[in-house]
Simulated scan of single mutants.
Amino acid sequence: MQVTNAASGMGDQEAIEFIRSVFGIVRSGDDATLGAMVAKGLPVNFRNEKGDSLIMLACYHGHQETARILLDAGADPDVPNDQGQTPLAGVAYKGYVEIAELLLRHGANVEGASPDGKTPLMMAAMFNRPAIIDLLRSHGARVDAVDSRGMTAVSLAEKMGANDVLPHLQASPTAS
């Protein structure tokens, strides 16, 4: 766990426990507590021992307001975890359209690929998320991008049996 100046004046163990409590606040979506902490200067780009950032956890757990608080305070919308997954890829997997919109409004990279080359569009395709595909395509996501195995969003969707997304991948994208 990366400890920063937020815990100055505390012993190492006390600082670690404080930081763990911040992650718990984000996981639970306790917006009031988080908002008060951010207003007092809490740094918003902490990462835990798995490399998950506060914004990654807020997004992955579906807490849109928590994510907004963090992003408005300067959280990096593209910071990957230790597996190279970005918050946008996480919400593409989970199907949280509103949070994907929020991340994109805050500058998330629509093409931000993991180390194996999977883009958020590919994640949405694999997990049958047509609304996410439409959103990502309207922001310029490339249907023809290939991962490290030469797979595209279409071939991944077909492999996973995610047939609902195929028309969304083949249609012309709509403007954002």
Score class of each variant (00 low, 15 high):
residue 53 S to P: 05
residue 93 Y to V: 06
residue 71 L to H: 01
residue 45 N to W: 09
residue 43 P to A: 09
residue 79 V to W: 13
residue 67 A to E: 11
residue 103 L to T: 02
residue 81 N to F: 04
residue 54 L to Y: 02
residue 72 D to Q: 15
residue 84 G to W: 03
residue 44 V to K: 08
residue 86 T to A: 07
residue 57 L to E: 11
residue 58 A to S: 01
residue 112 G to E: 06
residue 85 Q to P: 00
residue 106 H to V: 11
residue 80 P to Q: 02
residue 79 V to T: 14
residue 91 V to D: 08
residue 90 G to Q: 09
residue 40 K to C: 00
residue 44 V to R: 08
residue 28 S to A: 15
residue 68 R to Y: 08
residue 53 S to E: 08
residue 68 R to G: 03
residue 96 Y to T: 04
residue 91 V to F: 11
residue 101 E to G: 09
residue 90 G to S: 14
residue 39 A to V: 00
residue 77 P to M: 07
residue 112 G to Y: 08
residue 109 N to P: 14
residue 113 A to G: 04
residue 38 V to A: 02
residue 113 A to M: 03
residue 103 L to G: 05
residue 74 G to E: 08
residue 68 R to C: 07
residue 40 K to E: 08
residue 46 F to L: 14
residue 72 D to N: 15
residue 98 E to Y: 04
residue 76 D to F: 09
residue 43 P to R: 12
residue 63 H to D: 00
residue 113 A to P: 04
residue 71 L to P: 01
residue 40 K to R: 14
residue 85 Q to R: 12
residue 45 N to P: 11
residue 97 V to M: 08
residue 73 A to C: 12
residue 87 P to N: 07
residue 63 H to T: 02
residue 111 E to C: 10
residue 75 A to M: 07
residue 110 V to K: 02
residue 96 Y to H: 15
residue 111 E to Y: 09
residue 93 Y to F: 14
residue 48 N to S: 05
residue 42 L to C: 09
residue 85 Q to T: 08
residue 106 H to K: 15
residue 87 P to T: 14
residue 106 H to W: 11
residue 92 A to T: 03
residue 58 A to V: 00
residue 28 S to F: 11
residue 71 L to S: 00
residue 63 H to C: 00
residue 72 D to S: 15
residue 28 S to H: 12
residue 64 Q to C: 06
residue 94 K to Y: 13
residue 73 A to K: 14
residue 78 D to I: 04
residue 49 E to K: 03
residue 95 G to R: 04
residue 79 V to L: 15
residue 61 H to S: 14
residue 102 L to F: 08
residue 106 H to D: 09
residue 92 A to H: 01
residue 96 Y to A: 10
residue 82 D to I: 13
residue 59 C to Q: 05
residue 110 V to C: 00
residue 61 H to C: 14
residue 113 A to Y: 09
residue 104 L to W: 13
residue 61 H to R: 13
residue 110 V to H: 03
residue 109 N to V: 05
residue 49 E to C: 00
residue 102 L to M: 12
residue 95 G to W: 02
residue 46 F to E: 05
residue 31 D to N: 10
residue 38 V to F: 03
residue 112 G to H: 07
residue 31 D to P: 00
residue 71 L to A: 02
residue 55 I to M: 13
residue 78 D to H: 01
residue 62 G to E: 00
residue 67 A to W: 09
residue 113 A to I: 05
residue 57 L to I: 11
residue 42 L to H: 10
residue 28 S to C: 02
residue 42 L to G: 12
residue 66 T to H: 07
residue 70 L to V: 01
residue 92 A to Q: 03
residue 52 D to N: 13
residue 87 P to A: 08
residue 87 P to L: 05
residue 74 G to V: 04
residue 77 P to Y: 06
residue 32 A to V: 13
